[in-house]
Amino acid sequence: MKKIIIFLLTLVLFACQNKLECNPKEFKTGKFEFVQEVNGKKEITTFERTDKLQIETYNGRTDTASVRWVNDYEFILQKLHPRNMAEKKAISMRFISTKGKTYTFEYSFVGESKKQMGTVTKIN
């Protein structure tokens, strides 16, 4: 019993210390850059987001998606002109934390539990 109480107190202390800053309103709109590594190569995606649209450029190809805000921390992206079945799936995005000009987010296809994470930098 004593070990359980000590464990719970330790957990509470660490939870309070590791509280992340999250101010998503600064990142709802603007121009952004997302850098990721694909097969050992650095890939850069740039996009501009308004309240209702996101225009994204990756490898010279530009796509437009609708943006539907669920709340200040979450939104749904739906491609407006999907080229295949995979692109027809909506993507759920959720802000995890913010720091300076960057935010960390998690995303997954709507209805799927497998989530991935990434970090985006606001460039304008």
Rank of each mutant, 00 (worst) to 15 (best):
I91K: 08
A15S: 09
N23Y: 09
A15Y: 08
G111Q: 06
Q54V: 13
K41L: 10
L8Q: 01
T104A: 09
S108M: 06
F95G: 06
G100V: 11
I91Q: 07
F47I: 02
D51A: 12
K25Q: 15
S97A: 14
K101Q: 11
M85L: 14
K122R: 09
K19Y: 08
F95D: 05
S66T: 11
K89F: 14
F7P: 01
V12Y: 10
E87G: 05
F34T: 02
T62D: 00
H81M: 14
E56F: 00
T45H: 04
F27Q: 05
V120Q: 00
M85E: 14
K122Y: 01
I55T: 14
K28T: 09
F27H: 07
F105D: 01
G30T: 01
G100P: 13
R83A: 15
E48K: 10
T62W: 00
L53H: 06
M85I: 13
Q78S: 15
W69Y: 11
G100A: 08
V110S: 03
K42T: 14
E33M: 07
G118I: 04
L53V: 04
Y58T: 12
V120E: 00
L80F: 02
N18C: 11
S97F: 05
K99C: 10
A15N: 05
V38H: 09
K88F: 05
K79Q: 11
K89R: 15
E33Y: 00
I76V: 15
T98N: 01
K89C: 10
T62S: 03
L13I: 13
K122C: 02
G111C: 05
C16D: 07
Y103A: 00
G111W: 08
G60W: 04
E43N: 05
L53F: 09
D51F: 02
H81E: 15
F34K: 13
K28E: 13
K3L: 14
D51T: 07
M117I: 12
K122M: 04
K88T: 08
K52N: 11
